[in-house]
Amino acid sequence: MIDPIFALSVFATIAAILAIVFWPVRGLFWYWQRVYWKSELVDVEDALKHVYNCEYTSRPSTVDSLAGCLSITTDRAVDLVQRLDELDLLVTKDNTFHLTTSGREAALRVIRIHRLWERYLADRTGLKESTWHAFADRREHSTSPREVEALSARLGSPRFDPHGDPIPLPDGQMPAERGIALTKLGVGQSATIVHVEDEPDAIYAQLVAEGLHPGMVIRVIESAASRIRFDADGEEVVLAPIVAASIAVVPISVHAHVEEPFERLSNLQISERGKVVGISPACRGSQMRRLLDLGFVQGTEVEAELLSPGGDPTAYRVRGALIALRKDQAKLVYITRMGKGGPDEREL
């Protein structure tokens, strides 16, 4: 008979090998797959994108910034720049890079693909926001022009990606950069978020966690050297200035129609009532249509009626029906608060 210790050791060894190879993200298998995808074409396109982004936001692009952005050594970056130069895509002036006309065209083509994919992921899939960028980064190198135009048509030829970045037109047309950094707003000023920078990952993750999206209306409450406190669609957010600088906003002029203060449906306690004023810009396409189909439309009265014993979801009384939503979704519905529901007020 087989010795149990021997059998268990063999098992442990096999399990360990499998874990090393297939462990999610860090496993060897996934590593090999990434290496396989990472070809020269990918590096060239990524470099063009980097230089373009620097030009668009008026930052200088150098060998160091390029190496940092692509996670490659400076030597490799120098090689890459030479290759781009040979291909007549880029010229170097005073140690910074500038795209040639064909270089800019190529960069815009890649950016168009990337942003369309992000739009697709946001509108048509349930994938996490933090995974959009990586997915689009992979697909942008392997999508043919015809596939891109089909994708664009399917999405209703959108102009902006879910971060608020403009999607270049097929002929390369792009608007000038919009908005200013959130840090430049004064206390009490209101603005609409037009862009949430998705690089670097660490800062973007924090912004996603706070639920900040293009289209949200914010109002600055406090602006100090150490922190910026502001109200974003009814919820207070505190950010370090370096993080807040990743958000671009367009200030709302005093003449514009300013809505009365509103908050999120998830803030309602049981038997509290509110009136729907709209649905968050973070929720578009079929997801928004679903909430609308359920009856969460402007002007509708909503009452939080039941809380699950688990603490989530909450059931809301809407247009006579009782609809349960998880907190994540209730957050997407904006309301203004009304008085508490009593039996006499509860006329349907």
Binding site: P24, T125, G126, L127, K128, T131, Q287, R290, L291, L294, L306, P313, A315, A321, L322, I323, A324, L325, R326, D328, Q329
Partner: peptide
């Protein structure tokens, strides 16, 4: 976490 990654797309439930 692995084969079927992604966030819960939408959850809504009618309590008739």
């Amino acid at each position: 976490q692995t084969m079927l990654r992604g966030e819960v797309s939408t959850f809504s439930l009618e309590l008739p």
